[in-house]
Structures are given as C-alpha cells and as structure tokens.
C-alpha cells in the first residue's frame, strides 16, 4: 500500500473543506438555521460531480467496481439523528475537525480530536451489544437507488442533477429577495 495516494486524497479533501468554509462553527450551524446554506451547496455540488464521474468510469470499465455503502434503514437513520445533534451543537464534523486543526483551532485539536477518539473507543467497546442488533433491522445490504426503483442509473443521476439545479436556483433567489428586503427596511 502506498501512503502517497491516501495523503494526496486527504490533502485535497482538507484543502477544499477549508476553502469551502466547512472548518468554521457558524458555517455548519447556520445551515440548520437556514441563514447560510453553504454546507448544503457544498454537499450537493460534490454529489452531482462525484456521481457523474464515478458511474462514467465504472461504465467505461476504467475501474472494476465502485464501493457501495450498505443500507440498514434504522441504523442509518438513528446514526444520522444523533450525528445532527452533535453537528448543530458544536458546529463540527469528523473531517472538518482534522482540517480545522490545521487552521490552528485549539478547540478542534484538543477536545475535538480527543472526543472523536473517546467516541470511537465507546463504539468499539459496545459494538457487540449495539451494532449487530441495530444493523439487522431493515438491512438491505449494498443496494443503490437505480435498483430500488428499477431505472437506468443515468436517469437517476439526471434527475438528481435537475433537482439540485432547481434547488440552487430557488436558494439563490430566496437569499437575494431577503437581502433586498433587509436593504429596503
């Protein structure tokens, strides 16, 4: 295993997290207050670009396969619900803690990284009691949306891209309207 390749991937990832503003408390919490939608814009843009490239490379046979994250409805949902609480309370996230540490944030370097390690420790120590039970419920395995709705993957990607563009357009319009209203008051 080379170490250059994963460091390069991580480097670009951390660089873009910082440039996208994802290492800052207010950027992350404000997406949940609908006052700054940068997190959503960042995530949706990466999904659209990523899905086009990944399905294209797989269709063309450049890579043998893509890694499919398994779906186990209850675990994915409960995990997401708990995750959102932590994200909104502290304005942090797993990768931004590392990228923000590189920006000199002592609250990320000390309690942030230490907390992640403690969380990982607790998860590992309670794994047998928690994970098999929760991941067993509605476990669909490695499925993808095109299979679920029995449609061609390019149709799903096209639809996702279209929804994203409409959403972005509506978001920018709403922000402009609010700015004009604030300015005229």
């Amino acid at each position: 295993m080379t170490i250059i390749a994963p460091i390069l991937i991580g480097f670009l990832f951390g660089f873009l997290l910082h440039k996208g503003g994802m290492t800052r408390y207010h950027k992350i919490v404000n997406v949940f207050r609908f006052t700054d939608m940068a997190v959503l814009k960042f995530m949706m843009s990466s999904l659209v670009v990523g899905m086009i490239g990944i399905y294209l490379l797989t269709d063309l046979g450049v890579v043998a396969s893509m890694p499919i994250t398994p779906t186990f409805v209850v675990g994915n949902l409960v995990g997401g619900l708990l995750f959102g609480v932590g994200m909104a309370a502290a304005g942090v996230c797993a990768a931004p803690i590392a990228a923000g540490s590189g920006e000199g944030r002592l609250d990320y370097i000390f309690p942030g990284i230490f907390g992640m390690l403690v969380g990982a420790m607790l998860f590992g120590l309670t794994y047998n009691q928690v994970y098999p039970a929760i991941s067993k419920i509605a476990n669909e395995g490695p499925i993808v949306l095109p299979e679920v709705i029995d449609a061609n993957h390019w149709l799903v990607i096209g639809l996702f891209a279209a929804i994203t563009i409409v959403l972005f357009y509506a978001l920018e319009r709403a922000i402009r309207l609010r700015r004009n209203r604030v300015a005229s008051e």
């Binding site: 994250t69 994915n76 995990g79 932590g86 502290a90 942090v92 990768a95």
Partner: peptide, 23 residues
Amino acid sequence: WVIVFLAAVLLEYAAGIAGGCTS
C-alpha cells in the same frame, strides 16, 4: 471545549452506528 468534546464523542459514536460520517 466541553461542548466540543461531548459533540465529538456523540458524532463518532453516531458515525459508528450509521456506517460512516458526512464524508
């Protein structure tokens, strides 16, 4: 620092249950 610590513990535990984090 206390809030960041507690949030980080929760985030990492939640990522374990969910099968991953935001990335």
